[in-house]
Design a protein around this nucleic acid. Sequence first.
DNA 1: GTCTATATCGCGATAGAC
DNA 2: GTCTATCGCGATATAGAC
Lengths: 192, 192
Amino acid sequence: MRWAPDARGRLERAAFDLFGEQGYAATTVPQITARAGLTTRTFFRYFADKREVIFGGDEIPRAAARLISEAPPELEPIDVIRLVLDEVAATRFDGRREETAAWRRMINADDSLRDRDARKRADLVAAARTAFVDRGEAQRSATIFAETGALIFHVALDAWLAEPEARPMGDTIAEIMTWVCVRRLEGTPLGS
Amino acid sequence: MRWAPDARGRLERAAFDLFGEQGYAATTVPQITARAGLTTRTFFRYFADKREVIFGGDEIPRAAARLISEAPPELEPIDVIRLVLDEVAATRFDGRREETAAWRRMINADDSLRDRDARKRADLVAAARTAFVDRGEAQRSATIFAETGALIFHVALDAWLAEPEARPMGDTIAEIMTWVCVRRLEGTPLGS
DNA sequence: GTCTATATCGCGATAGAC
DNA sequence: GTCTATCGCGATATAGAC
């Protein structure tokens, strides 16, 4: 056949290998595509820019939105957050602490990656907000719940990665959640 | 004198004018510097990149950190947040709703500006966290208070700009704050 | 200040899949 | 045949090096 399969996967692997060897900034797109046996132009067909190789496109916002939609309708929003975060922690982070820490180190070492990382969090909030609205939340409460979920998750991820001993990330999340409480007050008089 | 004064201000004004006329993405740095009567190189001496003309450098994180440090030491963190946000609202936003809305529209219209905007929020959180630590908060609680302050501020700003009638931004902030509560639980047994 | 590398993207051609 | 992935070439702006 004319093209080797899985061009996207080859680009991702070549990129991560090179980033590991030389660092993110020192690696050029032509180097990545040369290693993957493709052209520079092809890289930009799969990834909007060089930063996007690091982040999984919109996979995370989509997964979060799906989990929120599928949560039992009778759950309070804060319990939806708990459910979603526990699921995410168990399936995507437990057992991958070292890889995750290395990934975070790479992001934190580069300014343009920190920009994009912050943007990804905003995208996650936007997707979660929509999902909460679909559950019947008002715009404003949906926004606050989405923001709060992202807050808990990011604080917990940082804390979990900083802990001396590996333990289930859900434990860290539970600790953070005891700290933050969000009350639904829509419609109640101000100051109540 | 050899150089016309206020190169930075001229660059900012030229940039905003051109962004208004042609849009952000369609405006090149050489166009900006030509209008300001300066060279491209000079632009990058004042601004790290093209996006930074839009944001005020690290002025906002610095101001927030200063306000947190100067708040009366006996205040609870959530009341420090209230104080700081009210001050910021009154001095920087009240009476500038239209400019602020236009500024937000410009940011939301461009992907690279959304990246940077999200990053600026992260920088603000980092500065506020440090300031809370200086007040004697533990790392983890400082992080949560800083994140919560940023959350309230951003939700309130969005809401305030979306309101049909202009009113003091502090009123919107007060409404949002009745929604979000943060408890200091460091040192208490888990599950309490 | 000048020079240059590199990211980024548009366009037309082409090769194989269905 | 049409559709899609890929290529090759080129143009331009940002951003950093010298």
